[in-house]
Amino acid sequence: MSLDGATLAAILAMALITYATRTAGLALAGRLALAGRAKAAFEAIPPAVLTAVIAPTALATGWPETLAAAITALAATRLPLLATIALGVAAVVGLRAVMA
């Protein structure tokens, strides 16, 4: 069991920020009236952030990863989350074996 100083600092920073986002809405409740473009921008935050995180792996690592990402995206429109993940992982393992 070991704890690194910088790792601990990162974990505590992540924890404090996350707690702040979870409780910020308590103060905002009833006061938040987003409309029009501001509302569209706020609603775009989750997909924009999630996409940005995985884009290098999905688009710029190699053909197996890009093809597997496309297969996963297709599966996501039809299958539950767990089945989507399982299919995506199986696809990347198979494609890496074939294209290596």
């Binding site: 690194d4 910088a6 790792t7 600092a9 990162a10 920073a13 992540m14 920020i17 996350t18 986002t21 979870r22 409780t23 910020a24 809405g25 308590l26 905002l28 409740a29 938040l32 706020f42 935050i45 989750p46 952030v49 999630l50 995180v53």
Partner: peptide
């Protein structure tokens, strides 16, 4: 460990919590 980048990434990803908790 990129502490500032990790904190910023966490803030961006969890900003949705603000709307969720407000609701």
């Amino acid at each position: 460990v990129p502490v500032a980048a990790l904190a910023f990434s966490t803030l961006l990803i969890n900003l949705r919590h603000v709307l969720m908790s407000a609701s």
